[in-house]
């Protein structure tokens, strides 16, 4: 009997939920192919704004910003994944030890503090210790707040791996390093991949913290877009937005497929 699962109106609200979430994105995607220079009038289908993104007057600025965004996200996500993996191993497999609770709170700290507060605190910290804000400070700030995002999927995956696999390897005279490298690490791989992807997207998307610690003249893609949008939404911004949207969808699809594959193997 399907009765107890069914509530009238719930389908309608779900559809409403999806319409609200998707309508703005779809509208911007559609208008990014608008041939007209006006954002209100439809001038026929055209790829001109995509050409404009790569060759137009803003191309150099956005290109540099995109390069900064991607290199920072690559480094921050990789560092955060390594640190989070070590932390997950300690938290999941280390049993009870002194400082476990405090460590857990610390890992989750960047999630609990509102982003704008982290942004303010980071700016104050970098200024107080005399660091010039710029590429380096963005990288360091991203690294710190990406750790919990990488930690969550890695720890979740690790919880699902029974100790018996590693135990079996040790019984067969594998050293601890061998058991880790040959048994645990491959089993953990889907968690590492999702953790890395999540950290990468979080870093790539960040606006508020970056905006505070970027310093003068330094831009990442979101801060460059924000600066542009302040003077009005132009068609090239819609093309850039659509491209970034496509990248996000690619990433979420990749994470989803990796996770599904991971679930089929033990």
């Amino acid at each position: 009997m399907k009765g107890v699962r069914h509530y009238p109106g719930f389908l309608g609200l779900t559809i409403l939920c999806l319409v609200i979430l998707y309508a703005p994105l779809i509208v911007v995607m559609a208008y990014s192919f608008n041939g007209s220079t006006s954002i209100t009038q439809w001038g026929g289908f055209s790829m001109r704004w995509y050409v404009d993104v790569f060759t137009g007057p803003d191309a150099k600025r956005f290109g540099q910003a995109a390069w900064n965004s991607i290199t920072i996200a690559l480094m921050a996500a990789t560092a955060a994944t390594i640190i989070a993996t070590a932390a997950a191993l300690a938290m999941v497999k280390g049993g009870r030890f002194r400082g476990r609770g405090a460590s857990f709170a610390l890992i989750n700290l960047p999630l609990m503090v509102p982003e704008i507060v982290t942004a303010v605190a980071s700016l104050i910290f970098f200024t107080a210790i005399g660091l010039t804000t710029g590429y380096g400070t963005i990288l360091v700030a991203h690294m710190a707040f990406c750790i919990p995002f990488a930690f969550l999927p890695i720890a979740a995956r690790l919880e699902g791996i029974e100790a018996s696999y590693e135990q079996a390897a040790r019984d067969l005279y594998a050293t601890r390093a061998q058991a880790f490298r040959l048994i645990l690490l491959p089993l953990l791989a889907p968690g590492l991949a999702s953790g890395w992807l999540l950290a990468f997207i979080i870093s790539l998307d960040d606006f508020i913290i970056t905006n505070f610690v970027k310093g003068a003249g330094m831009e990442t893609l979101p801060t460059a877009i924000f600066g542009s949008v302040k003077q009005g939404i132009k068609p090239n911004i819609m093309a850039i937005s659509t491209l970034m949207l496509a990248v996000s969808v690619l990433f979420v699809t990749a994470a989803y497929l990796i996770n599904r594959k991971g679930r089929q193997t033990p």
């Binding site: 030890f97 610390l106 910290f125 100790a163």
Partner: peptide, 27 residues
Amino acid sequence: MAGGDDSWRPLAPRLLIPTWVVIGLFS
């Protein structure tokens, strides 16, 4: 929690050092 694993227990504090350094110092 998956429970303590004896071979990992002594390593736990050392594995958390990078987290303490990075989040402690920068958050």
